[in-house]
Amino acid sequence: MSLRARILAGELVVGPFQKTPSPQVTELLGRGGVDFVVVDQEHAPIGIEALDLIALAGRASGLPVLIRASHAAGPAIWPALDLGCAGVMVPHIRSAREAVTVAEAMKYARGRGFSPSGRAGNYGRMNPADYRARSDAETVFLAQIEDAAALPHLDEIAAVPEVDVLFIGPQDLALSLGCTGDAPEMQAAIDQVAAAAQHHGKAAGLFVGDPAQIAPMRARGISVFVCGSDQGLLQGGARRLMAASRDS
Rank of each mutant, 00 (worst) to 15 (best):
E162N: 11
V160A: 05
I145C: 04
E156S: 10
A159W: 10
D147Y: 08
T139I: 14
G169C: 00
V140H: 15
D147S: 13
E146Y: 11
P170N: 10
L173T: 02
T139W: 13
P170S: 12
P161M: 13
D172S: 02
D164T: 08
T139C: 13
P170M: 09
L173V: 04
L151K: 00
P170K: 09
D147R: 08
I157Q: 01
V165P: 02
L173Q: 02
D147A: 13
F167L: 04
V163Y: 06
T139V: 14
D172L: 05
Q171R: 03
E138R: 15
D155H: 10
H153C: 05
H153I: 06
F141N: 06
E162P: 07
I145Y: 03
F141E: 07
P152H: 06
F167A: 03
F141C: 09
A159T: 10
A150G: 04
F167H: 04
T139Q: 12
L151C: 01
I168D: 01
L173I: 06
L142H: 03
Q144S: 09
T139D: 12
Q171N: 06
T139A: 13
F167E: 04
D164I: 06
D155T: 07
I145A: 04
E146S: 11
V165G: 07
P152F: 12
I157M: 02
H153Y: 08
V140G: 15
I145T: 05
H153L: 09
V163C: 13
A149Y: 12
I145K: 00
A159V: 10
D164Q: 09
L166V: 05
P152Q: 06
E146F: 14
A150R: 00
L142Q: 03
D164E: 11
A149V: 14
L151T: 00
E138N: 15
D172M: 03
L154F: 14
V163I: 14
F167T: 01
G169T: 00
A158S: 11
L142R: 02
Q144W: 05
I145G: 02
I157D: 00
D155E: 14
D155L: 11
A143E: 11
P170W: 12
V165T: 08
V163L: 13
A149H: 12
E138P: 12
E146M: 15
F167I: 02
V165H: 05
I168K: 01
E138I: 13
P170I: 06
P161I: 11
D147W: 07
L154K: 07
L173P: 00
P152M: 08
A148E: 14
F167K: 00
L154Y: 12
L166Y: 05
A143S: 13
L142D: 04
A158I: 09
L154S: 08
T139H: 12
T139G: 08
A143H: 07
P152E: 07
D164C: 11
A150F: 00
E138Y: 15
A158W: 06
D155W: 13
P161Y: 09
E146H: 12
E162D: 15
A143L: 10
A149C: 14
F167C: 04
V160I: 05
P161G: 10
L154D: 07
